[in-house]
Nucleic acid binder design. Structure first.
Lengths: 138, 138
DNA sequence: CTTTGTGCAAACGATTTGCAGGATG
DNA sequence: CATCCTGCAAATCGTTTGCACAAAG
């Protein structure tokens, strides 16, 4: 369910990215999923019905979107790069059974990172929680 | 500075791993560094002076060590797999400037992961802190 | 002596790159 | 119409695999 087209166009233009159909599609796709897909999954999804974008273009679009801060990379599994259009601070939960990744709202976890050992300047942090999701129960 | 040889041999045997020179070397190397090296860095380090181990062997040793719980994989950067012989629970700090990774003792950070949303069973969690290390100053 | 591990080289999968043609602002 | 982007295919990088030989227990 694509959201407001104008909004996406504005986001891209605002970041000085040319609005090409491919780039638009990649970002729109990411905005409409909460499953943190890999580049390959996005590509497959985009080309499901009709050919929309090439592999190289999806990769370069993701890179561009990441550089301008519209998309972030999520690293929770060995050698797998996932993407997320939710760039607001939040934590992640990963089901050890099925691999599903879910967002955890920032306030759901309380963290107090004092001023660690002297010399380390903290800029940001995030928590990764591992466990079992609802469907994988115990 | 290799630590007690006996200790390493015991650790391997205790996990039912044959004590080969290559496997011993990989684990010893990891025990003696705190920089969370990649497989390639370990390989280079081992073969610095004399050829010690082949690439394939380092990879398979790391996998074996990981399976028996002597080593863990650390994922903090895009597509980079690092290894750590410190398997006790702890957090990580990554300098955004130089990429250095440092361990943060478990008690240095206080986290309260309540029982998130119903259905999610928490097994473990860890915090990743991003910032600047001492040498990269402010 | 049985089983497991090593080394080599080939195979792989994901990501990147070079470049010519096409689209955007 | 200058610049940036796309698509293709080839190149690259880290990791894995198959297999014959060697070593460990």
């Amino acid at each position: 369910m694509p959201r407001d087209t104008q909004q996406i166009v504005r986001a891209l233009k605002g970041r000085k990215l040319r609005v090409t159909p491919q780039r638009f599609a990649v970002y729109a796709n990411l905005l409409d999923r909460t499953d943190h897909p890999t580049a390959e999954q996005i590509l497959d999804d985009l080309n499901r019905d009709a050919p929309t974008s090439s592999q190289a273009t999806v990769y370069s679009s993701l890179q561009a979107l990441r550089e301008v801060g519209l998309v972030r990379e999520v690293l929770l599994e060995e050698g797998i790069r996932r993407y997320d259009a939710n760039v607001a601070p939040h934590h992640h939960f990963r089901c050890e059974a099925c691999g599903t990744i879910e967002d955890i709202a920032w306030d759901e976890i309380h963290v107090s990172v004092g001023r660690l050992r002297p010399g380390l300047q903290v800029e940001r942090y995030e928590v990764t929680v591992h466990g079992r999701c609802e469907s994988c129960g115990q």
